[in-house]
């Protein structure tokens, strides 16, 4: 019995998607996602047609998103979620929707009032990682995937400090 429990525990390690790392995601370059809803108003429950859950619930994806968020200078307008030139991302007010596919579309298509379009410049997987991080800023993703620290100690962020 004891041995059985140990084997079951060992097997469950393989099931830990939260820590999985996908280095060769495809397809590489992002184009506007199909079936994006432009409004949060819709009949029934929210839809996630593009299967972004794998990124939302993956800790590495979120921390990679954080790195890209700083590297692609999202931080220049949105600060670390508090906003500035661009709207705040941590305040739970979403002009263009808070669902993953809506944020994906916002990043890829760009939005009026100054949000650039990153379509064709960032890979699909990178956009999804950014989405995962942006949603973590808004505390919309499972708490156990929020980045508790960054590998880069030079930059602290609200989420990075575990607040």
């Amino acid at each position: 019995m004891k041995r059985l429990v140990i084997v079951a525990l060992l097997l469950s390690i393989a099931a830990c998607d939260r820590e999985a790392r996908e280095y060769r995601p495809g397809p590489p370059t992002a184009s506007p996602a199909p079936f994006v809803r432009q409004t949060p108003l819709q009949p029934g429950a929210p839809t996630d047609l593009l299967g972004s859950a794998a990124y939302q619930e993956n800790r590495w994806a979120v921390s990679e998103g954080q790195r890209l968020y700083n590297g692609f200078n999202c931080v220049g307008c949105h600060a670390n979620g508090g906003g500035g030139i661009g709207p705040a991302l941590a305040d739970r007010k979403w002009k263009y929707g808070s669902e993953p596919d809506q944020i994906f579309a916002t990043i890829v298509e760009g939005r009026a009032e100054g949000m650039p379009s990153f379509g064709g410049k960032i890979g699909n997987a990178e956009v999804w990682r950014l989405v995962a991080y942006v949603r973590a800023l808004g505390k919309l993703t499972p708490e156990d995937t929020w980045p508790s620290r960054t590998d880069d100690i030079g930059e602290a962020s609200p989420v990075g400090n575990g607040q």
Binding site: R21, Y23, R24, G26, P27, P28, R67, G123, A125, E126
Partner: peptide, 10 residues
């Protein structure tokens, strides 16, 4: 270089 931070390009 698996894990390198450069993504594949199409």
């Amino acid at each position: 270089k698996p894990g390198a931070l450069m993504p594949p390009n199409n």
